[in-house]
Nucleic acid binder design. Structure first.
Lengths: 201, 201
DNA sequence: TTCATAAGATACGTCCGTGTTTCTTAAGAC
DNA sequence: GTCTTAAGAAACACGGACGTATCTTATGAA
């Protein structure tokens, strides 16, 4: 292909991981082969083998790479509802293609390695502080939400978003997102807030 | 293998589908090959090819077969909470191994055929009337739940169950199930019941 | 400008699953 | 008991991806 330019080191690695991410999202893990990624990146298989001994290693590297450059911005609209909607919409559009792949395409990866989708998700998310924490903390300081929310409630909107996306293999409609916030999440938050205040008095 | 007995027709088909279901649950879709299923069933590939032209056809047949023999019993404990717990526990233990496979192992199937996990799920469930409908109808007649629940609320416990199982690739703990019912589902039901009655008055 | 390094092209053997064909022989209907 | 049907064993060519080895040549640093 390239009779002239020849990429090296970090630039090459970047190009490969980018190609790998594309391949993964477009064609799923089944066709996420060393061969296909090399071709898409415009390089040759040995170049990949020199960096990642197995397809599983390449996948992990790809997921981490993708996760790093799709950090959600921290919304700060002044109210919990809009913050949540913003966050969910971002996740729905940007991260979800990744999660759908990770969750639903990677079954054979689980078979091969024993790494569950949940663990892959942690790879995607990384160690960075969760945006959600910040949003909820601000809501609590405004008196919109109780300070202590159990994991199940906190993560509810994301669990629902992810679950539905994994089933349908596509982003949710905006109505669905609004529904999750207005009909499920916020009512539960208000309920818990009321009972916390009621209990305190 | 069998120098003596030789199965035929329906009995053979049953044996094959049973072997296929085992193979699918144990080793996932990636290793759900005509070859592997034939071997596990103690027969030869041509026998399978005569019935199901492709691996996808075999998968659909297997899912339907499995779904048919894992119908959930309709619980009738006299209260919504226990009915829901019973139903969720059954799904968690029996159906879930299937759903985990369907949802999380079958990504490449989606790639091959365009059939989403949601559609596969419908295959599993079939056309039969949903047990959940009956449980909720009885709850409504007891005054425990409003008569008209939107899909999102009705399915909430199952969406959560399925989503979590697809992530972790294993059944939920019983505490998680209780949590889903007591901290998420029932509060929302009561809330809607109250507002429906309040609005009517 | 020189030179060590690594990109990238090519080729090789291997494994595994596909889909088909041929042949035998057991099963079940008559 | 005979005969049609289909099970099941074996072999085949095929394709795709693997993982490695070899050789060239561009790149970037000294």
């Amino acid at each position: 292909m390239s009779l002239k330019s020849r990429r090296r080191g970090a630039a090459l690695e970047e190009a490969i991981l980018s190609a790998a991410a594309e391949q993964l999202q477009e064609s799923g893990y089944a066709r996420f082969t060393i061969e296909a990624v090399a071709e898409r990146a415009g390089t040759s298989r040995p170049v990949l083998y020199r960096r990642w001994p197995t397809r599983a290693d390449l996948l992990l590297a790809t997921i981490r790479w993708f996760g790093e450059r799709t950090r959600p911005p921290t919304p700060d609209t002044g109210n919990l509802r809009d913050d949540m909607l913003t966050l969910l919409r971002f996740t729905n559009s940007v991260r979800l293609s990744a999660m759908a792949v990770i969750g639903a395409q990677v079954g054979s990866f689980y078979e091969d390695t024993g790494v569950t989708p949940a663990e892959l998700r942690r790879h995607l998310i990384g160690d960075r502080p969760q945006v959600l924490d910040e949003v909820l903390a601000r809501a609590a300081s405004r008196g919109e939400a109780p300070a202590d929310l159990p994991r199940r409630i906190r993560e509810l909107p994301f669990d629902l978003l992810r679950g539905e996306a994994m089933l349908t293999m596509k982003p949710l409609s905006d109505e669905s997102i609004v529904e999750i916030v207005d009909d499920v999440f916020l009512p539960l938050i208000r309920l818990r807030l009321a009972s916390a205040q009621g209990g305190r008095r």
